[in-house]
């Protein structure tokens, strides 16, 4: 996403990137960014908490105007919970079930990298087939299969 932000900024449109992975965003180095210290999958807030999410967005848009240094990052002050124990489990090795082994191992919890559309529901697949029946779709662009 950092490459995209940098390219849009270069094309003459100001950008702001939200982030919940500070080091990845710093490495990609977009023009402006705000960091929210939440677990991955919550870049813009918390489920079913519209007031909190509106507050985060209000602060985000305020930062858009306040950041004046190319590449600067603003830290938002929200915390995911009273403690940061969730951080211990992020991409961490899991303890081996076999107690005779001292080492911990990583578990591959990611999904297989299928190269066909992965629908959330079967109804979505039917809806997509129906809406693309004999027509070229203008909104599903750049599909490579």
């Amino acid at each position: 996403m950092g490459l995209i932000a940098r390219a849009i900024e270069e094309a003459g449109i100001p950008t702001l990137s939200m982030s919940s992975a500070r080091d990845i965003t710093r490495s990609a180095w977009p023009a402006r960014s705000v960091y929210l210290d939440y677990p991955l999958g919550h870049t813009a807030g918390r489920p079913n908490d519209p007031e909190l999410n509106a507050s985060i967005m209000r602060d985000t848009l305020t930062a858009f105007e306040a950041l004046t240094e190319p590449g600067a990052m603003s830290h938002l002050s929200y915390r995911w919970s009273d403690n940061d124990d969730w951080k211990d489990k992020v991409f961490a090795p899991v303890d081996s079930e076999d107690s005779s082994e001292q080492s911990s191992e990583y578990e591959d919890d990611r999904v297989a990298r299928h190269d066909t559309p992965q629908y959330q529901t079967e109804a979505d697949e039917a809806a997509a087939e129906h809406s693309h029946d004999g027509e070229e779709c203008l909104v599903c662009a750049g599909i490579d299969y």
Binding site: H114, Q118, D124, A128, S131, C140
Partner: peptide, 11 residues
């Protein structure tokens, strides 16, 4: 994606 659109793939 929105219902009615083609979903993304993983590769």
């Amino acid at each position: 994606y929105a219902s009615g659109q083609t979903a993304f793939h993983f590769k």
